[in-house]
Design a protein around this nucleic acid. Structure first.
Length: 179
DNA sequence: AGCCAGTCTCGGA
DNA sequence: TCCGAGACTGGCT
C-alpha cells in the first residue's frame, strides 16, 4: 500500500520538529514537543514508517524542508519549499491554505482578507478554523494571519510560537493583555 | 472593555 | 441529518 508516511525529524535552533512525507510531498509538520514522535498520529489512515530505506526524492524534499524551515525561523523568506501534499484537507481548507502561501515574509493578512480572497467574505470564522487545521505550519504561514486591527488571534501551536515567528519577521503587534 | 448576534465549516452523535 | 463549537467581525452598551 502506498498509503504510508515517512516520518523524519528536523533539528532547528528552536528544537526538534518532525515532518511526514507521502509519496506526493510534505504532508505534515509538527512543532517540537508535539507528541508525534512518541506516538505518531495515524492521519488519513496513513501508517508512520521507520526511517530506513528512505526513497531518494523524500531525502531531497527533506533537505529542502530543513533549509526552508531554518530560514523562516530566522525571519527570512524561504528560497525553495518542497512539494506539499494537502490532499487531506477539504476543498475549503485547501483554498484557504493556497491563499496563505501567497503571504510573503514580513507581511500579514487578516482572517477577513483571506475570506474575501477566496470569494467567501463572510466565512471569516471558518477561515480561522481552516488555519487551525493547517497541517504544515510555518511553511504555510498561518502565523501571518491576524485578527482585525492587528490583534494576535489564535494559533494551534501556541501563541508563543506565533509571537516569536512574527517578531522575527519584524511584524509589530498591538498590545493585548499580558504582552 | 465586554457582550452579542450573524455567518460558515467541520466533526461527532 | 442535526447540533454545537470555533484561531472572527462589527455594532452596541
Amino acid at each position: 500500500m502506498k498509503n504510508q508516511f515517512v516520518e523524519l525529524s528536523l533539528a532547528t535552533r528552536d528544537g526538534q520538529f518532525s515532518a511526514r512525507y507521502s509519496e506526493k510531498g510534505l504532508a505534515e509538520l509538527d512543532f517540537p514537543n508535539a507528541k508525534a514522535f512518541v506516538a505518531p498520529k495515524r492521519s488519513r489512515g496513513g501508517r508512520a514508517v521507520k526511517t530506513y530505506g528512505i526513497p531518494a526524492p523524500i531525502r531531497a524534499w527533506h533537505r529542502t524542508t530543513k533549509a526552508a524551515l531554518n530560514r523562516i525561523l530566522a525571519g527570512r523568506a524561504a528560497r525553495n519549499v518542497p512539494p506539499f501534499d494537502l490532499s487531506g484537507g477539504t476543498e475549503f481548507q485547501q483554498a484557504v491554505w493556497r491563499e496563505l502561501r501567497k503571504i510573503s515574509s514580513g507581511k500579514t493578512r487578516s482572517y477577513g482578507d483571506i475570506a474575501q480572497a477566496i470569494g467567501k467574505p463572510k466565512a471569516v470564522r471558518a477561515v480561522g478554523g481552516a488555519c487551525g487545521a493547517n497541517p504544515i505550519p510555518v511553511l504555510i504561514p498561518c502565523h501571518r494571519v491576524l485578527a482585525a486591527h492587528r490583534k494576535i488571534g489564535g494559533f494551534g501551536g501556541g501563541l508563543d510560537w506565533k509571537r516569536r515567528l512574527l517578531a522575527r519577521e519584524g511584524i509589530p503587534l498591538r498590545n493585548q493583555g499580558g504582552l
